[in-house]
């Protein structure tokens, strides 16, 4: 009596098998998924971990054609906004001045170092307070300039000539942005008053 029933069912199952070939196409996401329990509603495609914030050291070809350098080179040492600061600071030698700014009641301190016309600022890592990262690098006067040769006092037109159209701009500043960091040129009228390399939290 139940002759067709199982063959229909079995055929349906085998059909799905026949359509498949051996390659395991699922991206291997390390979520153990034994018949432990029912899930709340998650998409059937294996949910991949959100890509962690990677600081790309290589300068990407931005809208400005010529590659913009988002990391500042101070006395031959590259400072990458968002990266760990300890080793780099050691190789930079003793700064002209330091300033410590502990947060209200807890460990984790921001540090301000000045090297001539350049100020370097660090911030405590979110998870590991003892670990510090570069927050920003400020070029405060005309004695220093960006790897591309722009310095405080240059005109907006000279900037655009070298860097191209900014990612975002207002009369007060022109910003060039990339993954996780940016270079900001602050303007008064047509001249640059300050240049800041700063990390961008998404």
């Amino acid at each position: 009596m139940n002759k067709k029933f199982t063959s229909v069912l079995a055929a349906a199952m085998l059909l799905t098998a026949l359509t498949a070939c051996g390659t395991a196409e699922d991206d291997s996401v390390a979520e153990p998924a034994e018949p432990a329990a029912a899930a709340t509603t998650t998409t059937t495609a294996a949910s991949t971990e959100a890509a962690a914030l990677e600081t790309t050291t290589a300068a990407e070809a931005e809208s400005a054609g010529a590659a913009i350098n988002y990391d500042y080179v101070l006395n031959g040492v590259t400072i990458v906004p968002g990266a760990e600061s300890e080793a780099v600071l050691a190789s930079l030698g003793t700064p002209d001045s330091t300033f410590e700014a502990p947060s209200c009641a807890f460990t984790g301190t921001s540090y301000y170092y000045t090297y001539g016309g350049v100020q370097v600022v660090t911030y405590p890592d979110e998870h590991d307070q003892s670990l510090n990262r570069f927050y920003e690098v400020d070029l405060m006067d005309a004695t220093v300039s960006t790897p591309e040769g722009i310095k405080v006092g240059d005109t907006y037109d000279a900037l655009v000539a070298k860097y191209g159209t900014p990612t975002q701009e207002t009369p007060a500043f022109a910003m060039y942005k990339t993954e996780g960091k940016a270079v900001q040129f602050f303007l008064e009228g047509n001249n640059i008053t300050q240049i800041v390399y700063v990390v961008q939290f998404n």
Binding site: T98, F99, T114, Q119, V121, D138, A172, F173, Q194
Partner: peptide, 11 residues
């Protein structure tokens, strides 16, 4: 107080 930094401009 010594060399308290002047705030860098914000966007």
């Amino acid at each position: 107080a010594a060399n308290v930094p002047k705030g860098t401009p914000l966007t």
